[in-house]
């Protein structure tokens, strides 16, 4: 039986200046799934993760992790979760190994168990050759892997990852994805992650909640979300100057046809199966197909559909992002 590992009901965080960072958010995460929070910067992803990891107190609403309430049973929650924060929080003056052992001490893991586990984790994230080097000499990717290792030291049942690949290059990002998949497959860990990379959410998550301005606007598996747009888009052009809209519309799986500048824009479910059928039908009637393309909807289109703006547009410039973070941090600190 599948049980819910994380349950969130009407979770809200209002910062002192009246800024509503998270606005009555409700969702649940099942055991063993990777659940992603997707949204632009400042949408309330980190605030949500901070409430679930007991670092921030919710203003309103309830949330529980493995049945423990994040406010009333905060210390129980802290024992069973692992956290990989967005910032590089490892102490730069200590070595990678010292950092992991410090985490182990904070969880009260017996020394001998901790030593063995720390070495295993360093091996997992491929930092063994650098374990006795100070963290200040590490690259961004190495730091991120070290954070991951620290978050795993207590063999958590649920791992929270806040923007796990923020600012990493493509190769390092792929490596982090591999570690994350491994955790799910080999340890049956439940993972809650936030990201503003759509490819990441698409590639990694079993289910995604799209969040914007503190509200969840859509929730479901990546294919469900993309499917909710009404399927794939097939664009077709024929040589003959006749209207074949009706003909196409009668084919199974086709949902909508629009004639546009001599080409037909067809919305259809499972486009890769439907497109050959359309070709067949048109050929049998003696039409010549001159052009054909098949587009799978991306999460960007999903985001566009629900918010009315492209997520890339919602992404602020780097400077705006930094100043936004500073504002947010001040708001959080008060």
């Amino acid at each position: 039986m599948v049980k819910n590992v994380i349950e969130v009901d009407g979770l809200t965080k209002v910062f002192n200046k009246g800024f509503v960072a998270v606005d009555h958010v409700s969702f649940s995460v099942e055991e063993g799934e990777i659940f992603g929070f997707l949204g632009p910067n400042g949408a309330g992803k980190t605030t949500t993760i901070n409430m679930l990891t007991t670092v921030l107190k919710p203003t309103e609403g309830r949330a529980s992790v493995l049945g423990y309430d994040v406010v009333r049973q905060a210390s129980m929650v802290r024992k069973v979760i692992g956290v990989v924060p967005q910032e590089y929080t490892a102490d730069e003056d200590l070595t990678g190994y010292e950092n992991i052992m410090l985490c182990a001490d904070l969880y009260g893991i017996p020394k001998d168990v901790a030593k063995k586990r720390a070495l295993e984790l360093l091996e997992l994230v491929e930092l063994t050759p650098f374990k006795d080097k100070r963290v200040e000499t590490y690259s961004g990717g190495m730091r991120r892997r070290l954070e991951l290792a620290c978050g795993l030291i207590n063999t958590p049942k649920v791992l929270f990852l806040d923007e796990p690949t923020l600012g990493l290059d493509v190769q390092t990002r792929a490596a982090i994805w591999d570690y994350i998949r491994k955790l799910k497959e080999e340890y049956n860990m439940t993972l809650f992650m936030t990201t503003h990379y759509m490819e990441e959410a698409d590639a990694l998550c079993d289910r995604i909640a799209i969040i914007d301005h503190g509200k969840i606007i859509a929730i479901g598996s990546p294919s469900e979300l993309k499917g909710s747009l009404g399927g794939d888009v097939i664009t077709i052009s024929i040589k003959e100057d006749v209207d074949v809209s009706e003909l196409i519309r009668n084919i199974d799986n086709v949902k909508d046809v629009k004639k546009d500048n001599g080409s037909y824009r067809i919305k259809a479910e499972s486009g890769e199966v439907t497109a050959p059928i359309i070709i067949d039908v048109l050929r049998r009637k003696g039409y010549t197909i001159t052009k054909l393309s098949l587009e799978k909807p991306t999460l960007n289109e999903v985001y566009l559909e629900y918010t009315g703006k492209s997520m890339r547009d919602a992404e602020e410039s780097r400077e705006a992002f930094v100043s936004h973070r500073i504002t947010l941090r001040r708001a959080r600190s008060k």
């Binding site: 901070n50 990891t53 007991t54 670092v55 210390s75 802290r78 024992k79 979760i81 956290v83 924060p85 967005q86 910032e87 590089y88 929080t89 102490d91 985490c103 904070l106 969880y107 009260g108 620290c150 207590n154 600190s333």
Partner: peptide, 15 residues
């Protein structure tokens, strides 16, 4: 420690 995020990490542990 708060600025660097170290404090948040420590706060998320059961120490």
């Amino acid at each position: 420690d708060r600025r660097l995020g170290f404090l948040d990490k420590v706060l998320s542990t059961p120490v």
